Lab assay of single mutants.
Amino acid sequence: CHSECLGNCSQPDDPTKCVACRNFYLDGRCVETCPPPYYHFQDWRCVNFSFCQDLHHKCKNSRRQGCHQYVIHNNKCIPECPSGYTMNSSNLLCTPCLGPCPKVCHLLEGEKTIDSVTSAQELRGCTVINGSLIINIRGGNNLAAELEANLGLIEEISGYLKIRRSYALVSLSFFRKLRLIRGETLEIGNYSFYALDNQNLRQLWDWSKHNLTITQGKLFFHYNPKLCLSEIHKMEEVSGTKGRQERNDIALKTNGDQASCENELLKFSYIRTSFDKILLRWEPYWPPDFRDLLGFMLFYKEAPYQNVTEFDGQDACGSNSWTVVDIDPPLRSNDPKSQNHPGWLMRGLKPWTQYAIFVKTLVTFSDERRTYGAKSDIIYVQTDATNPSVPLDPISVSNSSSQIILKWKPPSDPNGNITHYLVFWERQAEDSELFELDYCLKGLKLPSRTWSPPFESEDSQKHNQSEYEDSAGECCSCPKTDSQILKELEESSFRKTFEDYLHNVVFVPRKT
């Protein structure tokens, strides 16, 4: 048989008469490798580009789960590009990614509803959504962080984005990388972005840091009482949809009607710091009717980097990364020049730590249904340095008659930039024990000054392991946590139920 035959053949030295091919099969003959313009397919066939392209389009058009959109890589027609490569849609070739590779997620039936953290986790790592997304989240724990972890990498949506009755959302900033909504599939009414009845939605994105392009379709905003109209108009300008909307697409009466839409800028007039305090004062603000001013709200939190936005980490279910302080308005003076500047002394802060701070007014709604208010920009203030805590785990070892090696770990709280350490030492008198000992005694162990690591005695271990207080009263049991108490109650309830079950099964009433 021919060298490319495997198993047997019907005619000697003829690659077209093989029972099976050793390498690849091409047009009725066995070959060692697939010549151009053919590609290896499933490690035994040679196919042309049209064959591989037909497989790709067949799966793409069917949208069946589990099928493969075949691509070409290293002269092979394979189910998908290997790690580190992405497909070129024009020629199906796998090309190296520039940075992290995109991950295209194809949605069944063309859309997916995100109504819980669990459903959001199914899209973790996706960068391109081939379909439409509907966000409908009523509640949950730590929602802002969970949504950002699972949806934060999405850069492109081919269909539309719909935010509907998501009472738990305060902001859409968890879509931190969303840059493009194509609108290839539109919501009824030709809408590519749809926001309806979101009672706590206050911000779409921080438009000073976020760009969003909507290729096709219109915007729809109705019944978002805490979303200011200025935020919607800003989205029109940034996304390129200005002029597409009709009169009733953006409701003037049901958007922002319960919001404090600040239209003035508060400026800080005085800032002073110490290692654990920050004193702030800002310019006074009074609405047209000074009785509408209820006070100020001061927001602050630790910020290692200057990239904080107002609604980071917030949701309507209680999660809030900001510390909020309510401040009463100052006494009002008739003389504008003698107006008191409101302020606040922030206490209990960490030394040498940068804080993000902003302040906003708290006002009631005027009778004319106009909203007044003022808010400052987010500023960054760093507390002063102070003395560091003591170095940890000092170790001293003498390696000769004239040297001592000293080692330690950095302090747990540096409280500033540590530039150097101060080492103090003092000579001590020799131990009298060394002169009084009889060095001729056998088995004498000389006193040693070398360091030995501390260890816990058996008594201390027994005390720590004991669940009861000892007789001397030195140790006591740790208080039980809520989960331990709940577990004990469940076990007790189970024992009672099981005992009742045994009584009912074992003891049967005697027939009379």
Rank of each mutant, 00 (worst) to 15 (best):
K242C: 09
P351D: 01
I378M: 05
T213L: 10
G110T: 11
V170I: 14
G183C: 00
G313R: 08
W282H: 11
R124H: 15
W207F: 14
G343R: 11
S132T: 09
T118V: 05
L280N: 01
E310V: 02
L143Q: 15
N198S: 06
N141S: 12
T127I: 08
L294H: 10
Q306E: 03
G139Y: 11
L107P: 12
W207L: 07
G373E: 02
S192L: 01
K350R: 15
L178S: 00
I404V: 12
G189I: 03
L172M: 06
N263Q: 10
S400G: 06
P287M: 06
K337P: 11
G343N: 14
Q314Y: 07
P304D: 14
D289I: 01
S389Y: 08
Y380S: 09
G373W: 04
N307G: 03
E246I: 04
I134R: 08
E156I: 07
L153E: 09
L280S: 06
T323I: 14
P388L: 01
L331Y: 05
N255G: 03
G159H: 03
K350Q: 15
T127H: 09
C261T: 02
Y380F: 13
P288L: 12
Y270V: 10
D115V: 04
R281M: 07
R247W: 09
T113R: 03
R247E: 02
N307K: 06
L406S: 05
I154E: 00
F311E: 10
D197T: 08
D206E: 07
F268L: 10
K301D: 12
A195E: 00
K409A: 03
Y300V: 12
N142D: 05
T353R: 05
G313Y: 13
V170A: 07
A195L: 10
F311L: 06
K407L: 06
S239F: 09
G110C: 03
L265Q: 14
E283A: 10
H341P: 14
I378N: 02
P336R: 14
K409D: 03
G140K: 13
L227C: 06
F296M: 15
A356L: 01
L201I: 08
A149T: 11
T127N: 12
G343V: 14
A303Y: 02
R179I: 13
K267C: 07
P410L: 07
S401D: 08
I137F: 15
P411V: 06
K350C: 06
V170T: 09
R179Y: 13
N130T: 11
G159E: 00
L133Q: 00
Y167K: 13
W344N: 12
S116D: 01
P336T: 05
H106D: 14
K162I: 07
Q354S: 08
Y223N: 04
L362S: 02
G313P: 05
L133S: 00
L294C: 08
K267V: 13
L133C: 04
G152Q: 15
H233V: 07
L172S: 04
F311W: 12
L345Q: 15
A168P: 13
K103E: 08
A316S: 08
Q354T: 14
K301V: 06
G256Q: 05
L107N: 12
S338K: 15
E187V: 06
F221C: 14
N340M: 04
A259K: 07
T213I: 09
W352H: 10
H106T: 11
E146G: 06
N141Q: 05
N334P: 13
Y285K: 03
I135S: 01
V363C: 02
L392Q: 04
Y194V: 13
Y372L: 04
M297I: 13
G313Q: 10
E187A: 03
W352I: 02
L265M: 11
V397S: 12
H106V: 14
F299H: 11
P342D: 07
S396K: 08
M346D: 00
R370Y: 08
I357L: 01
Q306N: 02
K226H: 14
A251I: 09
T241E: 06
E122Q: 08
D312M: 12
L147N: 02
D292M: 12
P288A: 15
N190V: 06
S166W: 03
S274K: 12
D289H: 03
W286V: 14
I135M: 07
P329Y: 01
F299K: 06
G125S: 09
D257C: 03
Q382M: 13
K226P: 02
M297N: 15
R369Q: 14
T323Y: 13
D289M: 01
G373A: 08
K162G: 12
L349I: 05
L266I: 05
L204Q: 03
V324E: 15
N307L: 11
G189A: 08
V128H: 15
E237C: 11
G131T: 02
E246P: 11
L123A: 07
W205A: 08
K267H: 05
V363L: 13
Q245M: 15
K409S: 11
E302D: 07
D257G: 11
I278S: 03
P288G: 14
S132H: 01
G217Q: 12
S402C: 06
L108R: 11
V170L: 08
P287V: 08
Q203V: 06
K177R: 11
N224R: 00
G343E: 15
L219N: 15
T215N: 15
N142L: 08
H233L: 04
S402L: 13
S166K: 00
P342Y: 06
Y300R: 12
K234V: 15
L180N: 11
S401Q: 13
D257F: 03
I405L: 09
P342I: 15
W207D: 11
T254H: 13
E111R: 15
K242L: 09
Y270S: 07
Q258V: 12
G110Y: 04
L147E: 02
L172A: 08
F221I: 15
Y167A: 13
D315P: 08
V238E: 07
D249T: 11
T241A: 10
L298H: 01
T254Q: 09
K162L: 15
K360D: 02
P287S: 05
G110W: 05
W205V: 04
G217W: 02
E264S: 04
E156L: 10
S274L: 13
Y160D: 01
A144H: 01
D367V: 02
E262A: 11
Y372N: 15
I134K: 02
I188C: 09
M346I: 07
S389C: 15
E156G: 10
L123T: 14
L280G: 02
F296C: 09
E148P: 04
D289Y: 02
R369N: 13
D335T: 06
D312F: 09
W207G: 09
T113A: 11
N340H: 07
S230H: 02
Y194F: 11
H222Y: 08
E156W: 15
R281I: 10
L201W: 01
F174K: 01
G140Y: 09
Y355Q: 00
K209M: 05
F193R: 00
G140E: 11
Q354K: 03
L298E: 00
H233C: 04
S208Y: 12
P394R: 06
G125P: 04
S333P: 11
G318Q: 06
L143A: 13
N255C: 14
H341L: 11
N150M: 11
S166H: 04
N198H: 01
V363I: 08
V390R: 12
P329V: 07
N150H: 05
R138C: 01
D257Y: 12
E283Q: 02
S401P: 12
K360S: 05
M297S: 06
S321E: 09
W282R: 00
I395R: 05
